[in-house]
Amino acid sequence: MLYLHYLGTYFLMIAEMFKKPTKWSVMKQLILKEIDDLIIGSLGIVAFISFFVGGVVTIQTALNIDNPLIPKNLVGFATRQSIILEFAPTFMSIIMAGKVGSFITSSIGTMRVTEQIDALEVMGINSLNYLVFPKFISLMLYPFVISISMFLGILGGLAACVYGGYASMGDYIEGVQLDFTPFHMAYAFIKTLIFAFILATVPSYHGYYMKGGALEVGKASTTSFVWTSVVIIVLNYLLTQLLLS
């Protein structure tokens, strides 16, 4: 019953987020600030992880192909499929649940503990619209981050493949272009947009409704990371079943 209560509160929070909009001149500044914090601020870690994981996927694939009948371009093909279908949209989102999600929960949670949210409410401001809506809008640019992750993952794979001597650049690029299905990109970006919504709202929920002091802010951040990851993994399964099967 308690979980149903939490779920109901979460959906009520989402509905409330769209009510009583904050003045546009103020909201515009908030959205730009959130884009800077959540999107631009994540590019470095996304680029770093994507490049090296792309390299590792390539090496692992190459080392597991020992049959001379299998063409060398399979390394590029397998890397592309792994990066586009799963690594960039799903696993990068779990990493972002740690980075962006914890940031959202702790910043909103700290505002709750220090009565800053009460101060907004007393002034007659819809605190959910003021705090959560700009995060939601800025994370609609999340597919842009995932595009960079896809590109750098494949580029990292190319670097590892060529400098590791597993296949030639031509073979790798041929593999990347082999049997390309445009719907796979659509599938990846549909998932990304849904995960962006989860990344904006689940951590906000944990921060907004937390009770207690500084210690509880830390606990809320951890709980938020766990639940955001769980929701992403479950939705990943459901969306894959719906879109690809």
Binding site: T110, Q116, A119, V122
Partner: peptide
Amino acid sequence: MVFQGSALFD
């Protein structure tokens, strides 16, 4: 409103 902990936006 003046809150106990001031509640300034940090």
